[in-house]
Computed example of a mutant assay.
Amino acid sequence: ISPGDLTQFIRLIRSFEQRNFKPVVFQQVSLNQTVQDFIHTFLPDIATREGLPPPFRKYGYVILIKCTHLVLLFQTNELVMSLDGDEKLILQDDQTLKAAGVANETEVGFFRKEDYVFYKANPKSKW
């Protein structure tokens, strides 16, 4: 697999409490781009993607992205996303995807920082 032929899974998270998320697949992703460049690549796609409900397309995601599943390495028992390991798993804007530990078929969560901080302080579901 060449660096430009990788597949990445983005988990768009609208609500941690209500476990409201949608997975989206992006193909031909280069691991040599920065996290910020990757976000700028897929953000316009989300706004116009067919099959994605309008609430997910129009949600005001604040740029915070966290690895939720690395193929063959770890998975979380949390339905939406693990609340542990922020220092290792939250991707930094200026890092390349490769330097951040992202590989082919890595799943990352995309959400609002304030929603995550609020949920992490009181991780209760509302459903």
Rank of each mutant, 00 (worst) to 15 (best):
A103F: 02
L72H: 15
R49P: 03
D84Q: 11
Y59H: 15
H40I: 00
V35N: 10
L52S: 04
P123T: 01
N32W: 02
R11A: 12
V24G: 01
F56Y: 15
R11M: 12
Y59M: 10
D37F: 00
Q27M: 09
I10C: 07
S15V: 02
V29C: 08
F118W: 02
L52E: 05
E50M: 09
L79D: 13
A47Q: 12
K113S: 10
S30K: 13
N32I: 00
F110G: 02
F26G: 01
P44G: 07
G109N: 04
G85M: 11
I63G: 00
C67V: 15
K126C: 07
E50T: 14
L72Q: 11
L31Y: 02
L83N: 06
H40Q: 14
K98P: 00
N20W: 13
A100H: 04
V108W: 12
L89E: 07
K126F: 12
Q36N: 10
R14D: 07
V24S: 01
K120C: 06
V80I: 11
K124S: 08
N32A: 06
I10W: 14
N20V: 00
R11G: 08
T76F: 01
I1E: 12
K22E: 06
R14T: 05
Q33M: 13
E78Q: 14
E50K: 15
V108G: 01
L43C: 05
K58T: 15
Q95S: 07
L6A: 03
S30F: 05
S82N: 11
K113H: 14
F74D: 11
P53Q: 11
M81E: 11
Y116H: 11
L64C: 09
E114D: 15
R49V: 00
K88Q: 12
T34L: 06
I46P: 01
F56A: 07
P54I: 05
S30E: 04
I46D: 03
P23H: 08
F74Y: 13
K22T: 02
W127P: 04
P54Y: 11
P54N: 11
L12A: 09
K58L: 14
